[in-house]
Simulated scan of single mutants.
Amino acid sequence: MLQEALSSIVKFHNYLQSRTDPRVRDYPLMQSPLHMTALLLVYVFFSVYVGPRLMANRKPFHLNTAMIIYNLCMVLMNGYIVYEFLMSGWATTFTWRCDLIDTSSSPQAYRMIRVAWLFYFSKYIELLDTLFFVLRKKQSQITFLHVFHHSFMPWTWWWGITLTPAGGMGSFHAMVNATVHVIMYSYYGLSAAGPRFQKYLWWKKYMTAIQLTQFILVSIHISQYYFMEKCDYQVPMWIHLIWMYGVFFFLLFSNFWVQAYIKGKRLPVMDDKPVQNGSTSEPIKVVANGKHVGNGNAHQYTNGKILIGKVKEI
């Protein structure tokens, strides 16, 4: 029984190796799903178990300077990704409707492959978001949605660019996501800069609206496939998965918007430590982005467990 299971795994691995697009095979983290899956499992284990326990009896680190630099780098990186997506098709040759997977060896195809891989790789860099939370003992912000989003995105994107690195209309959501991250990390950078920048953060409520707009755009764009008379997109499964992803996260963030801004049940708790200007020593982030959700009902870490909201426990 065990031998048959191992044989099936080996056959599946060999099948993936044969199906991997040769144009992306030599890129880092693209050789096998085992490497990236193991890395993401370590991330999840560290986020919900090891990290909080290591910090349980330690004082939180003050990492404002590091966070400012990190967020600035993420703004620049995502801005570059958006530009490259535009130049590799979306602002040049794409129709914004039925754009097929490019299997050629043209310079544009290789440019799309490079930026698709860079977008994928950026998801591993974003795992540092959680590390900052752990080191600063902001466990209330390490929600289930935060961990799920950070681990699910790179895992699913590995399959996408392994099989179809120049994905045509399937790459639209990546370009939109990178655009949103330019705005998001700009906000985080200003937030990390201290209380003197509070006056520039009046728009934090609209971060959720920006996220909702992202999922609406992605869902509308990909839904065109179902109404076209003919669209010979080579891997229809990607279309269905992207549509489900857009709708799923739209519902999640809509619920956050209702709970936080209409019912007022999930607004973050303000720090007790005041400063001279009457604001808190560190700005609170109210962003339902699957990343940094400050949940007012989330309990702080006290016993080695992370409690999400009032009843959810990981």
Rank of each mutant, 00 (worst) to 15 (best):
D129L: 08
P154Y: 03
E282V: 10
R23S: 11
N297S: 08
E313R: 11
V293F: 15
S140N: 13
K285Q: 06
H35P: 07
Y70T: 03
P236N: 07
F45M: 06
F148N: 08
I306F: 01
G296Q: 02
L6Q: 06
F144H: 04
A260W: 02
Y83K: 13
F85L: 03
K310V: 07
T93N: 14
M228P: 04
I262M: 13
A166L: 12
H292Q: 06
K285T: 12
G160D: 00
V247R: 02
Q276D: 15
H149G: 11
T302Q: 12
M184W: 02
V75F: 10
A192Y: 12
K273M: 11
Q17W: 00
F227S: 10
V287M: 13
A174E: 00
L63Y: 08
S171D: 06
S191M: 05
S151H: 01
I222S: 07
N303F: 09
I161H: 06
A166R: 00
F248Q: 03
W96Q: 05
V182G: 06
F152A: 14
K205A: 06
Y43M: 04
W158P: 07
V24R: 02
S254H: 10
F45A: 13
I69C: 14
F248L: 15
T93A: 13
Q234M: 08
E229V: 02
S122L: 09
G168Q: 04
I161R: 04
M207H: 00
F256W: 15
A192C: 14
V311A: 13
Y206I: 02
Y188H: 07
N14P: 02
R23I: 08
D99C: 07
S104M: 01
K204F: 10
N14G: 08
A56G: 00
F172W: 04
P52C: 01
L163T: 12
K11C: 10
A109Y: 02
S122E: 05
L135E: 00
F152V: 12
Q17D: 14
Q17R: 05
W159M: 08
V286S: 11
Y200C: 14
Q234V: 13
W158Q: 03
W203R: 00
M270E: 15
H299P: 00
S223D: 07
L118E: 03
N277T: 13
V48L: 11
R196S: 15
T208S: 09
